[in-house]
Write a protein that binds this DNA or RNA. Sequence first.
DNA 1: CAGTGCCT
DNA 2: TTTT
Length: 202
Amino acid sequence: MTEETLEIRGFRIFKGYLDTAEQAALVEAIRGVVRAAPLFSPMTPYGKPMRVRMTSAGRYGWVSDRRGYRYEERHPEGMAWPPIPGEVLAVWGDLVSHARMPDCCLVNFYDADARMGMHQDRDEADFSWPVLSVSLGDEGLFRIGNATRGGKTESHWLQSGDVVVMGGDARLTYHGIDRIKPGTSMLLDAPGRINLTCRVVD
DNA sequence: CAGTGCCT
DNA sequence: TTTT
């Protein structure tokens, strides 16, 4: 049900891609993922906890600890990651590919104060596959930079139901979330934002 | 905490 | 590399 598509520096932003019912179904599916693979607060390699809480679905999950950033086949508590929900795979199929499904769906929970600094997604083996991002809950200010740190940036408020595809030249572009605007969505019970990011890992 | 700005 |  995409209302419009924006393109900012190669990031394709599908505004309102998911309607309210689809968003609610995704949240339910994510609740199932979290029951099977509990949220955890990853530690950065340099010893500071990250602001977001996270878990994953799929063959791989993304983890961070003193040993660095990487994909693992098991949750830090030892269980395998649950399957990626069909609702998520459907979005990937529509916007990315039917031939190849993602290996990982990273689930990030931002509370009202959480942010994510500017970074690249570069832990995957093949950058020819895009990263797909789904926003749920409160709005987040998405910031898009350049292929290297620094330089001018452009920002865009991501709303619940928006989907972003970061591929091609944008695949290694620095990006981050500057802030969350609590109270801008009724989707979740508590203030905050859920972001799903799907990737082909290897 | 100053640049990559965000906006009270 | 996901920081202040």
